[in-house]
Write a protein that binds this DNA or RNA. Structure first.
Lengths: 141, 141
DNA sequence: CGGATATACTTGATATTGTCAACTATTTAT
DNA sequence: ATAAATAGTTGACAATATCAAGTATATCCG
């Protein structure tokens, strides 16, 4: 394996490690509100005044649509999100944060940036560089 | 929220997005061998001649020990890993790659670095910077 | 020494997350 | 107008996750 591949490989492994390591810190933030890691992520993705079609969420999570159905079922039954039929296309249902959901989201984001999490170990420069690289990596259209 | 927190928050979201986006690329690599994302990660973590105690794996994955039991059960039944009692401490069981497991791991790493994956969109410099930042983030002891 | 405590792993119960196949409703294409 | 594609749901089921309880081994300490 050449050196370039080794870097790619190592980066991959570290990204995975970070994802799993991150769960250890959820008890102090997400789980305090009884949110699973995925629910935290969905809550983060759902911006307060920007309704999101369920199919878009399935795309972002790279999972089956039926998975989103269940995920949203649970979040809706807890009063965090609401399904609304889209007027333009009556097949699609868009997700909206409820007031409760938006409040929880704010608290979650606050905790996310709170001092104890590993991200705060990075310098500002590093954080900004990381964001730039990840944006290239994720390539949101 | 101040600008520094916004960067941290955005980095967090991007890291999560990457993790989920990454699953979309597994069908072309991991799933070809019928490996789940977690199984891929474990296979990557298990280096050929470096046995790993199950408890260390549970630490790395930030999950309950019983979860690792099931995970290893499935991988062992497929002949990818082997449990061996540690001679020093008979409570611990260490995991070793089988020949099959090692072979699969090599193929997996090769595919990981193969052209089509998003990591290859980064320049060498970016890859190296990313590795450096992630190492600070994950902080392996 | 010996009992209490801690650690490593397993088992069983249960919830969540994930896939797939089949179905309904709606939209788009021909 | 019919056919094909898309959005979402449902049901069956497997994988992943947690917790509580149990077994076996190690360690601590009076």
């Amino acid at each position: 394996m050449n050196p370039a591949d080794q870097d790619a490989c190592r980066a991959w492994q570290l990204l995975m490690k970070f994802f799993f390591a991150q769960r250890a810190h959820l008890p102090s933030s997400g789980a305090r509100f009884d949110l699973s890691p995925i629910q935290c992520h969905v809550l983060h993705l759902l911006e307060p005044r920007r309704p999101l079609p369920m199919s878009r969420l399935a795309d972002t999570l790279s999972c089956d649509a039926s998975n989103v159905t269940g995920l949203v079922d649970r979040m809706e039954s807890r009063g965090l999100v609401r399904r609304r039929s889209s007027p333009e296309d009556r097949r699609v249902k868009v997700l909206q944060l409820t007031a409760t959901g938006a409040r929880l989201r704010t608290q979650l984001l606050r905790q996310m940036t709170g001092g104890s999490l590993p991200l705060s170990r990075l310098s500002l420069d590093q954080q900004r560089t990381l964001v730039k690289i990840l944006e290239a990596l994720v390539d949101e259209k």
